[in-house]
Nucleic acid binder design. Structure first.
Lengths: 341, 341
DNA sequence: AAATAAACTTTACGCGCGCAAAGAAATTCA
DNA sequence: TGAATTTCTTTGCGCGCGTAAAGTTTATTT
């Protein structure tokens, strides 16, 4: 690398013997310049390590290449994994994903929206917090930038992509009823619409099969689901308040807590007759396969959800038309039979 | 909100009846303007929802407010949690954190570094991938922007903050030897320097106590540690190749896999005499408390690590002096006694 | 070989804001 | 009340790049 520092495209253009507009063209699409020109630029790129200033770029572009991504809770591997896939897709498509986590807090979700707004993104992919979301704030945001929501449907933005909770819950309720005692339902703290929908779906599925639904409510509103599952689970087991020997948990993280509770209380969990309890979850969390016993659950097709979300967002960005038709896409879940139920 | 759209500070200044430079001053520090002026601006802010263009801001500032944050693997709740704390601290200090995950891949780490560079950050907080890191690339980056590394020490940047593996491993080896059979060591795939250091620390600690160290090597180089723990664990148990009835795992995620393996193979894990195996981990992973049985481990003081990293970075940014003295800070681990050992 | 097309260079403007200087207005102090 | 101080306004430059227009060179076609 040569001595003097290259800081602007002007300097770099001079150093490479190419005019600035052409260099600019190169950075926007290396294939858009003649091979020999490209060579010369890339040769210079080897000598000096120059990177165009992203702020100057984005200030001048008609449209930025930014795509905002907001997830409710990044410490949840489920969202971390989705975020990873989204980032990949965006980068591959030439966009620049900017990731925010609301960390379960309304204030942080609002902050993320504001910061995002000041980055003038061409689009946004948002999994809203849900119940604690500031819907007014979200709506205001979605009015300014094309938005696709996923995971949690708040009727915001131009499209929603998620799972069909009625189908997936129906699937596992059906399985559990077929193979043993009908399940009670360990409800998620109602932090988002999915929680409510799953409860409803459970009740509906049970009634359709002629069973009496029994819902266990967890009091608090924390996103620390494992803790809820563990504490509540221990209490229920100790007080013998579990209404049935089969528990369907509103999501896997609660199930992870409940499995720990059962273990600590000496209750054997599994499908076999020698077991005292059956536990099932929902989502197929990355760690569902490492629980003891491995967790039977319904897999959310998050690959499809991510793909469809991105696809839809790109469509909207390309069309530029903000027709008011809101599209909702729901994907089916898939039974993941393991040892816990 | 009024009709016409406000897009520039000029327009907003006109609408609020204040001059643009003063409005600019307000946005940089609301307290720097007279109370009555502030009122007028905030009143206008209520009528129009104007946000200064972040790109224009950062292009013109002598120094941006950006702080780059790169973690090796965001889907690991350990790093997700640290990232969350770092973000918080940065925002509170008036900086704008930009988070990247290398997702375990050299290419992505390099991409993150390049993108970061083009954002002209005033500083960076980096947990390098480790073995697969492109050290040359990292060094180049650190030459241009003040960098503090954490978690994995690659002798890059102006400071490193991490855990004292010799102390922490010594602590748990000592505990395990005192309370039962001396442990063998389930080595992490050597993805980063911590992995190697911990192995060395284990050997050293065992020898100091007069025991023969026995290291189990896991073949692959994946970041999917639980899978490694599970697969390798099952194989070792099936082939009766576990050299001792006590296994110290290089980190908790491996231990989680090993616990699952033991469970699936019908091996009872715990400290009691009725148990066939003792398993201990390292890190105090957020989920270590939900394993079956709950995992005995050494807690990394990641609050201290984050605090010190941030503090150090702010110092460097403030001083602007790039004295070549590299500072390394190591924090002690703390024994977390649970049921698994 | 000439004619057409593609890629290039030169020139010039504008993006939205930070920032600096000089003077005017408002506030504080003696 | 006047002087000193603070805060404001006006004016104007510059950041680093995208982008457009017009003219020039190079590559491709017939």
């Amino acid at each position: 690398m040569s001595g003097q520092k290259i800081h602007t495209m002007e300097q770099f253009a001079a150093a490479s013997g190419i005019s600035r507009p052409t260099v600019s063209k190169y950075f926007n699409d290396p294939d858009s310049v003649r091979p020999r020109t490209r060579e010369k630029i890339e040769e210079a790129l080897g000598r000096f390590n120059y990177t165009p200033n992203l702020f100057a770029i984005n200030q001048n572009r008609k449209k930025t290449k930014n795509i905002g991504v907001i997830v409710p809770y990044l410490a949840d591997p489920f969202f971390a994994e989705m975020a990873r896939m989204i980032e990949r897709r965006c980068i591959d498509a030439g966009y620049w994903p900017i990731l925010f986590s609301s960390h379960g807090q309304r204030q942080l979700e609002n902050n993320a929206l504001d910061t995002l707004l000041s980055l003038r993104p061409v689009g946004a992919l948002i999994a809203p917090l849900g119940r604690v979301s500031d819907l007014e704030h979200l709506r205001k945001f979605a009015k300014e930038v094309p938005t696709v929501t996923f995971d949690s449907n708040q009727e915001i933005g131009e499209a929603f992509v998620g799972s069909d909770n009625y189908q997936s819950i129906g699937l596992i309720v059906d399985y559990l009823c077929r193979t043993g005692e009908p399940p009670c339902f360990f409800e998620l703290p109602p932090v988002n619409p999915n929680a409510r929908k799953r409860t409803k779906a459970y009740i509906q599925a049970m009634e359709a099969l002629g069973h009496t639904p029994q819902v266990i409510r967890a009091g608090d509103q924390s996103w620390d689901f494992e803790q809820t599952g563990l504490n509540e689970g221990k209490r229920l087991i100790a007080e013998r308040k579990l209404p049935t020997n089969t528990v369907l948990c509103s999501n896997d993280r609660i199930a992870i807590g409940l499995l720990a509770a059962a273990y600590q209380m000496g209750l054997r969990v599994g499908a076999g007759t020698e077991c005292a309890l059956r536990v099932a979850g929902h989502d197929d969390h990355p760690w569902a396969q490492y629980t003891c016993p491995p967790l039977t659950t319904v897999r959310q097709d998050y690959v499809a959800i991510v793909d469809r979300s991105i696809e839809k967002l790109f469509e909207i960005i390309a069309s530029e038309s903000s027709d008011d038709s809101r599209e909702e896409t729901l994907f089916d879940g898939k039974l993941m039979l393991r040892a816990s139920a």
